[in-house]
């Protein structure tokens, strides 16, 4: 079981790491993080790691990490069916569950290495330029960013197992991105206005609880120290949200793929 899964994971990693997009994203993360730190506070020079996190949360994390996850996963199943390599893969002594798990691990490592290289190198450069850097917060930031990427990978693999063509899965991935990173904001603002429409003060607890549902805003809840945390809105629950987004779509994808016609 494990050997087969690792073989598939390794193959996926090798097949995708040569993708120029992935190299580009790594570089992009590095550059944006460094710029974010250097120009984030132009008056005092290099910004501390914690300050840098808040600056890049709204650029790299919010927009690009979901894109990487979706981009790597949307074709992972339907693309291979469409091209024809899935037939020979499934004629080997593997189960379909092993194929999904192997692909998730392989593509997940691509995401994790992209984040690790991009943010990691930037972190080292920043740490060398500021007094007493807060490594802990930065490591948590890297960890939760990986989890966010894995969540979107999981969603895109679900899309890839549902749709019957690569093009349709791509459409689904684009919609997912637009929904979680753009439409969501309008939706939340709309809800806030509705709650305030009777003249009462908006229930901020409810507002932030809803933000737990979206993996992107859940990630912000972990990183943004200005948001009041309470019984419902907590680091633990935000992390749990990211974990659920990683596990539930993947399990659903497995369930669908077991019945899929190749």
């Amino acid at each position: 079981m494990t050997k087969v899964v690792l073989s598939i994971a390794k193959k996926e990693f090798l097949d995708n790491i040569r993708n120029y997009w992935i190299l580009g994203f790594s570089l992009l993360f590095l550059v944006i993080t460094l710029l974010g730190s250097y120009f984030g506070s132009i008056l005092v020079g290099w910004q501390d790691l914690e300050g840098t996190i808040e600056t890049i949360e709204n650029t790299v994390v919010r927009f690009f990490i979901p894109i990487i996850g979706l981009m790597l996963g949307y074709a992972s199943i339907v693309g291979e069916i469409e091209r024809g390599s899935m037939s020979s893969l499934l004629s080997l002594p593997v189960t379909r569950d092993e194929v999904i798990l192997g692909k998730f691990l392989g593509l997940g490592s691509v995401i994790c290495s992209t984040i690790l290289i991009g943010f990691g190198i930037a972190g080292i450069v920043i740490a060398a330029n500021v007094p007493s850097p807060n490594y802990g917060a930065y490591l948590i930031f890297i960890g939760t960013s990986m989890l966010l990427g894995l969540g979107f990978l999981s969603i895109s693999m679900l899309l890839s197992s549902i749709f019957k063509s690569r093009a349709a899965a791509m459409g689904g991935a684009i919609f997912t991105w637009v929904f979680f990173s753009i439409i969501w904001t309008f939706l939340i603002v709309g809800i806030a206005f509705y709650l305030m429409s009777d003249g009462s003060k908006p229930n901020m607890d409810l507002f932030y609880s809803i933000q737990l549902i979206n993996p992107i805003t859940a990630h912000s809840l972990i990183e943004n120290t200005n948001i009041p945390h309470n019984v419902v809105v907590s680091y633990e629950h935000a992390t749990l949200s990211l974990l659920l987004w990683t596990i539930v779509p993947l399990l659903t994808a497995t369930w669908i793929f077991r019945r899929k016609e190749i």
């Binding site: 090798l14 097949d15 993708n19 037939s87 020979s88």
Partner: peptide
């Protein structure tokens, strides 16, 4: 098994 229109992983 040799499928009809066999395909491989192009990047490898």
């Amino acid at each position: 098994y040799l499928p009809e229109n066999v395909a491989f992983y192009d990047n490898l």
